[in-house]
């Protein structure tokens, strides 16, 4: 079965980061494996500037994304676990789990995102993700549903 998030798209970040930097870190993972072009990262930041921090969808959790556009080369998701939580000026601050995703078409909802939703509804899993110290741990937790 297909993984929800591939190994290379997962990172533990120990440095303190402002929210713009945090989105860059998560976006760079997508950039590195060729799922987006660099401008998508700016589009994700712009989304927050335009609409506010609504991407912080639950306590400690944010999903950075922008509109489907030419900067998206394929559907993908990345995850950065911040050991020093990030502030977005949201009621759900501070953010420990930052996902970034790219969707190439509007009509098509990411199957991976749907699976992720199930995972993120489990409090124990979310807590375990937040407390993870290695990328391998995160990878196993995230993909526990499909493996």
């Amino acid at each position: 079965m297909e993984e929800i998030i591939i190994r290379e798209n997962i990172r533990i970040e120990r440095q303190k980061a402002k929210w713009q930097e945090a989105i860059k870190i998560a976006g760079n993972l997508l950039l590195k494996n060729g799922s987006i072009t660099e401008s998508y990262i700016n589009e994700m930041i712009h989304t927050v500037l335009e609409f506010g921090p609504y991407i912080v969808i639950a306590p400690g959790m944010a999903i950075a994304h922008a509109a489907p556009s030419a900067s998206v080369l394929r559907d993908d998701i990345s995850l950065v676990v911040f050991k020093d939580p990030v502030y977005f000026d949201s009621q759900n601050d501070p953010v420990k789990l930052l996902f970034a995703f790219s969707a190439s078409k509007k009509e098509q909802h990411l199957e991976q995102l749907v699976k992720l939703s199930t995972l993120l509804s489990e409090e124990e899993t979310v807590q375990a993700l937040e407390e993870s110290n290695t990328e391998e741990e995160v990878y196993k937790l995230v993909n526990s549903l499909v493996m």
Binding site: T47, E50, F51, Y54, I55, I57, I63, H65, A66, A67, P68, F101, A103, K106, H109, L110, L113, V114, L116, S117, L120, S121
Partner: peptide
Amino acid sequence: ICGFGVGTSTLLMMK
């Protein structure tokens, strides 16, 4: 509803 109708609104739709 979310910003673009692709990400967070999908999660919400499922719930």
